[in-house]
Computed example of a mutant assay.
Amino acid sequence: MLEVRGLHKSFGPLHVLKGVDLVVRPGEVSFLIGPSGGGKSTLIRCVNFLETPSAGEITFDGRSLCREEGNIFHIAPERTLRAARSEMPMVFQHFNLFSHRTVLENVIEGPVMVKRQRRDEAIAIAEKLLAEVGLADKHDRYPDELSGGQKQRVAIARALAMQPKLILFDEPTSALDPELVSGILDTIRGLAERGMTLIVVSHEMGFARRLADQVHFISGGTIVESGPPERIFDAPDNPRLASFIRSILH
Rank of each mutant, 00 (worst) to 15 (best):
S182Q: 14
L176W: 07
L130V: 04
Q117Y: 00
A124C: 10
M196G: 00
T173N: 14
D186I: 02
T102C: 09
V181D: 02
G149K: 04
E121C: 12
H100I: 08
F169Q: 07
E179K: 13
E105Y: 06
A136T: 06
G110V: 14
A157E: 11
I184D: 04
I156H: 02
F169K: 08
V133Q: 01
R210W: 07
I123M: 15
L146E: 00
L146Y: 01
F169G: 10
R158M: 11
P172Y: 15
D186K: 14
M162I: 05
P172I: 12
A126Y: 08
G149S: 08
V133T: 05
V201E: 05
S99N: 07
F169R: 04
A124Y: 05
L160M: 15
A124F: 04
R116D: 07
V133K: 03
A122N: 04
L185P: 02
R209N: 11
R118T: 01
M196H: 05
A157L: 12
E193K: 13
Y142P: 03
M196Y: 03
P178A: 09
R209G: 05
K151E: 09
Q163L: 12
I108H: 00
T187Y: 00
R158D: 08
D140P: 00
H203P: 06
D144K: 07
A161T: 07
R118W: 13
T102Q: 03
M205D: 02
A192R: 03
M162Y: 04
G190N: 12
A157I: 13
T197F: 12
A131S: 14
Q150S: 06
